[in-house]
Computed example of a mutant assay.
Amino acid sequence: MNYIKSQRSGSIMYLVVFLFSIITLSVYVLNVNKVYYQDMKTSIIYMMLGALLTILISNIIPQTNQSPVYRIISDIARILTPILIVWAGVTFISMRVESFGYIFGSNLEMGNEAAFDAGQQAIVGIVLFIVTWILSIIASFLKIGKK
């Protein structure tokens, strides 16, 4: 608990972004394994894992080393985090846009509970991606490290 109290707001925000990223990735994996979809793109998983790695890099380096080179690496990681999350989210949205038309806007999937369940879960995933995007962008502007 003392560790969290001694951190700046950016470090705490990145912890929140890290948790949201794990939740978002989990919802993505659950959604692409639904009976209706089954269309996993490993690139989204790699982008989200890259975002998790850049979050760790941007938070660990300021705790351990204050040299200018390491600060530059930390800053680059802070820039890459929202880029990777946005890229993964846009890719996921592009995978689902057409299916939303079939599921919610036509009679083709009328009465197909698996389709409606998968569509609703995809909407939850998109909302989580958007919240994670916003939080990661806010976190990138806050100071990180120890107080």
Rank of each mutant, 00 (worst) to 15 (best):
T81A: 09
Y102G: 14
I61W: 01
W133S: 11
I76P: 04
D75G: 09
R96H: 09
D117W: 09
E109L: 14
T91H: 11
I137R: 00
I61C: 03
V90L: 14
L128T: 00
S58K: 02
I73Y: 00
W87C: 14
T54S: 11
W133R: 07
I60M: 14
M110Q: 15
S136P: 07
I72H: 10
A114M: 12
T132F: 04
A118C: 10
I126A: 01
I79W: 03
I73W: 06
E109V: 12
L52K: 08
T81N: 06
V131C: 03
G89P: 06
I73A: 05
G119V: 03
V131S: 02
I60A: 13
I138M: 05
Q121W: 13
F129Y: 07
L84M: 09
L49T: 15
I57W: 05
E109S: 12
T81Q: 04
M48E: 10
R96S: 07
L56E: 03
N59L: 09
A115M: 05
P68Y: 08
I126N: 01
V124R: 05
S94C: 11
D75M: 12
F116L: 13
P68L: 10
S140F: 01
L84E: 01
S136I: 01
Q120A: 14
W87F: 14
V124M: 11
G111Q: 12
N112T: 05
F129A: 01
L108R: 15
S106V: 09
A122T: 01
V124L: 14
A51G: 05
I137D: 00
L80F: 10
I61Q: 00
D117A: 15
A88Y: 04
L135C: 09
S136M: 06
P68M: 10
G101E: 07
P62K: 06
G105P: 05
G125A: 08
Y46I: 13
V69R: 12
I60W: 07
I61M: 07
Y46G: 14
A115N: 03
L56A: 07
I55D: 00
I61G: 03
I79T: 05
Y70M: 11
L56V: 08
W133H: 11
E113P: 04
V127T: 11
T81F: 00
G50T: 08
I137F: 03
V69I: 12
T91Q: 12
I103C: 01
F92Q: 01
A51D: 07
L53H: 06
M110C: 11
T132G: 07
R78N: 12
A51H: 01
